[in-house]
Design a protein around this nucleic acid. Structure first.
Lengths: 245, 245
DNA sequence: ACCTGAACACCGTTCAAGT
DNA sequence: ACCTGAACACCGTTCAAGT
């Protein structure tokens, strides 16, 4: 009898039913797993439930809504973005940008969920916010400039990876691929001289001119230039602010 | 008889039925209108069809899919981003960034659709691509550096506005607002000294620490610093590359 | 307390049928 | 050629019912 019950609990009927009870942590873990394996297009409450061997509505006991589940997923994934302390604020920022991008590289399908949505605010990591603020304060930014620099840093952190790992929509007939490749290949050198001359360097390596995202074709050199430029530029803005004062 | 037919065509049965026949342009226009009026959460093929007084499936004669409709919407909205020519490449870039952000300000709900999705590639404006490439070439970027600089510029163009006008998810109970405000208000000055000291300057004015987006609370000063920094930094990278050669 | 199960109000898209 | 209308395979979420 007891053996039978245990067998039932392990669930030979519901195929993937886990022995462990449901919890917010288990749901978030299953959500991340699903996102990594099946992509954004199959990322749904119902599929997470299926992976857990449970009814979709069961999740609502542990998680208030899809939006807030996504917020928890983001919080879990970026729990360790924060770099070691560094006396040089510019190196610290560079480190932060790198670490952020590395996480997105490891879970590329989350990119569209972080960039353009304010959900992230639902699970703010105050440690991250304070770390950026205190680093910029040590660098010399004050008051209004501090806020502006902080916003610049957050965009610098998320902006590149968001675009590098942008969502590629399902294209089974490869229509996007063929039409894009064709129009670039056929670009009139008279009208588009630089594009025509550099086309082989650009296809799938330049934003907007690609059908693969950073997953299959990373945009490494641009990341370096973008982050280096932004940081160097912030340092320069700081100088200017000092000279004003 | 003819009068009756005209009345039928104007459509007293289907309420909003337009007299004009359906077309790709009309659909895109209705889509933009719906996006502006009703927001991203109500932006669907079915609602666009309803606004046009037509069956949802009628759209598929003129538009291949939702993804590609979005691509056309984006193409239509950003048809005029391209700034006037400018001898100073840095001013030209600044102008480009401003114009891009102005368009997003005018149609803020499109922001999440542009930033994190590769759909935009389905409707590439080669003129824009060439303009950026030729400007950077005139500035002095070559070969691999040109690609890296181009990618930096595209991220610079889209990155800030994407986050400034990020999607705010429906929150009728104002849970996000209250919890975020509370946690920032209650931030321990010992653990979060800068955050605690600057909290009134930060709430709804610093990314991640807000429940409103740029629509209700623009992040103007950060935009200035971000774009100025990026451009100044690119100029500096250019100097470095020249010194290497 | 935690999960089932039915139900509601939505989606995008396919395809046969009408005109 | 262009639109209707039914149908399919999905969604997120609410809520009563079970245990």
């Amino acid at each position: 009898m007891t053996g039978r019950k245990d067998a039932d609990r392990r669930g030979d009927s519901g195929r993937k039913r886990k022995s462990a009870p449901l919890s917010s942590e288990a749901i978030v873990a299953a959500a991340i797993d699903l996102l990594d394996r099946e992509g954004l297009d199959n990322f749904s409450i119902r599929n997470i439930a299926k992976a857990l061997g449970v009814y979709p509505t069961a999740l609502y006991w542990h998680v208030p809504s899809r939006h807030l589940l996504i917020a928890r997923v983001i919080a879990a994934l970026f729990a360790d973005v924060l770099p070691e302390e560094n006396a040089d604020w510019r190196l610290w920022l560079k480190d932060l940008f790198r670490r952020y991008r590395d996480i997105v590289r490891a879970h590329p399908n989350v990119a569209p969920l972080v960039g353009g949505h304010l959900v992230s605010s639902a699970s703010v990591d105050l440690n991250l916010v304070e770390a950026i603020l205190s680093t910029l304060t040590r660098a010399g930014f004050e008051d209004e400039d501090l806020v502006a620099a902080y916003n610049s840093v957050v965009v610098g952190m998320c902006g590149y990876a968001t675009q590098e790992f942008a969502h590629v929509f399902p294209d089974p007939e490869r229509e996007l691929e063929t039409s894009l490749a064709a129009s670039v290949e056929a670009a009139d050198p008279a009208r588009y001289p630089v594009l025509a001359a550099q086309r082989h360097r650009l296809l799938n390596r330049a934003l907007v001119l690609r059908w693969k995202n950073g997953n299959q074709a990373p945009l490494e050199s641009g990341f370096e230039m973008f982050t280096n430029s932004l940081i160097a530029g912030l340092a320069q803005e700081l100088e200017r602010a000092r000279n004003r004062a």
